[in-house]
């Protein structure tokens, strides 16, 4: 019986991983030059910011909440750092920690509203989304290009790997964060508290877990991740613009869901999220290699996958309930 439950928990994750490799294999068979390490690495380079955001989102989803402000926070971080670097001529060493702190505080405030005033997470982060997007336009309506030498260096620097492959610094940041998140979710008190609260907040409280603190901190973590993602995104785009990262929150949620984190809370995998992002990356790359399909097919394909996984999760839950009632 225990073995069964274990497999239920991991079934989505397994399907995601298998699907990723299947899609990659299909691409390798269909297109010349698809099967190379660099194509795989490019997926990481192009989606580093999405990985970072999606990890923060995973924690929020595990605790049973939602954070739709992440895309706007990324835009705000890009805009504000462009403003501080270019107009105020501050150094990158000051700007980057400042941005990360701002993101963390933004998340903490949202979390406090959600926890202390028991307002729905969707509404609080909706307000946060409006606020961050609006503040972008308060700073500037036009694009601000970033010409700061440090940013330019990070944006163009490629870390060479064996066999002529390379990755960007953003990828290193993203992968370090993945490892940190893995440690945090699996080997710390905080991680266990997050899972417990997501499973059942009431029992978590009765067990003496710090529900309020954990909840607020998780939103803080998500804010921090979006800020970090914003910094990485500003390396990637080298500009600040109010329309940056439009709709990214939905991509992040989709990645987590495809990676086996249901929106009901209590369950979720950082590794799954990583593969959730990579599946979107494979689809993008496939469409790029195909050449004639337009980029909006990515959206449709992602939505289709999302639908498939959600229905699948539902079926798993149904079957679990049935076996439970039989036993």
């Amino acid at each position: 019986m225990k073995k069964m439950q274990l497999s239920y928990k991991y079934i989505n994750l397994m399907i995601t991983v298998v699907l990723f490799f299947a899609l990659f294999a299909a691409g390798s068979v269909l297109y010349n030059g698809f099967f190379s390490t660099q194509v795989l690495l490019n997926m990481l380079i192009d989606n580093a910011f999405l990985i970072i955001t999606a990890i923060g989102m995973t924690f929020v989803l595990i605790i049973g909440g939602i954070d739709i402000s992440v895309g706007s926070v990324i835009a705000l971080v890009c805009m504000l750092s462009a403003y501080l670097l270019e107009i105020q001529h501050l150094s990158a060493i000051i700007v980057i920690p400042l941005m990360l702190l701002m993101g963390f505080l933004f998340g903490l405030v949202q979390g406090s509203f959600i926890h202390f005033f028991t307002i729905q997470p969707f509404i609080v982060t909706l307000a946060g989304m409006f606020l961050a997007r609006g503040l972008c336009y308060v700073i500037s309506i036009d694009t601000i290009m970033i010409t700061n030498p440090f940013y330019q260096f990070v944006a163009t620097y490629r870390i060479p790997l064996p066999f002529g492959n390379f990755i960007s610094i953003s990828v290193i940041i993203a992968l370090v964060l993945v490892l940190a998140a893995l440690y945090l979710s699996n080997y710390t008190k905080f991680g266990r508290a997050v899972y417990a609260i997501g499973g059942n907040a009431q029992s978590a409280m009765l067990m003496g877990l710090p529900v309020g603190r954990t909840k607020v901190l998780v939103y803080g973590l998500s804010g921090f991740c979006s800020a970090l993602s914003g910094v990485v995104f500003s390396f990637y785009m080298l500009s600040g613009y109010g329309l940056h990262a439009m709709g990214l929150e939905m991509d992040a949620i989709a990645s987590a869901v495809i990676g086996g984190t249901p929106l009901t809370g209590g369950v979720g995998f950082v590794t799954g999220t990583l593969f959730g992002v990579l599946i979107q990356g494979v689809i993008q790359t496939l469409i790029m290699f195909q050449g004639t399909l337009s980029s909006w097919w990515t959206k449709i394909a992602v939505a289709f996958l999302l639908c498939l996984f959600i229905v699948l999760q539902r079926i798993v839950v149904f079957r679990k309930e049935r076996t439970k009632s039989i036993s």
Binding site: F113, I119, G134, L135
Partner: peptide
């Protein structure tokens, strides 16, 4: 500037939610 609309809207949302929240009123 029309872009400020978003900021105003967010403030309105927050205020209204706070007023609707029983906990906030209690505190």
């Amino acid at each position: 500037p029309p872009e400020i609309t978003l900021v105003v809207k967010s403030v309105v949302v927050i205020v209204i939610c706070l007023l609707q929240s029983a906990n906030f009123r209690k505190i």
